[in-house]
């Protein structure tokens, strides 16, 4: 019988997560969320303006096309598998 150990482990993880969650709640970690949005920016001295380039935008479009093509290909493959197996 090994299930009780796994269930005990999963349950202990859940309980520890709850303890940390309520610690955070009591310590006000979820209170000032508007200020929290700026913490990364505040941790750095103000940087100069961003230098933009047309090449950079083109690069973004190429990346988007590559990602979309990959996703569509993957979707088609999975759909065909499902149709093939279920049909």
């Amino acid at each position: 019988m090994y299930y009780p150990y796994f269930i005990a482990y999963m349950a202990s993880g859940f309980v520890i997560s709850l303890v940390i969650f309520f610690w955070a709640l009591n310590k006000g970690q979820f209170n000032n969320q508007q200020r929290a949005r700026f913490l990364a920016l505040e941790s750095h001295a103000a940087a100069g303006p961003i230098k933009l380039s047309r090449k950079g935008r083109l690069h973004a479009v190429i990346l988007l096309i590559m990602a979309s093509a990959g996703l569509v290909t993957s979707m088609i493959a999975v759909t065909l598998i499902v149709l093939n197996l279920v049909g």
């Binding site: 961003i50 230098k51 933009l52 380039s53 090449k55 950079g56 935008r57 690069h59 973004a60 990346l63 990602a67 990959g70 996703l71 993957s74």
Partner: peptide, 27 residues
């Protein structure tokens, strides 16, 4: 800010990472 991302070496690596994250999760 896509232009800004690709003007920055760190940001373009990390933004690309987010796209792969999307892809790997759907898969």
């Amino acid at each position: 800010k896509l232009g800004a991302i690709h003007a920055s070496i760190p940001a373009k690596f990390i933004f690309t990472g987010t796209i792969f994250y999307f892809f790997v999760n759907i898969q």
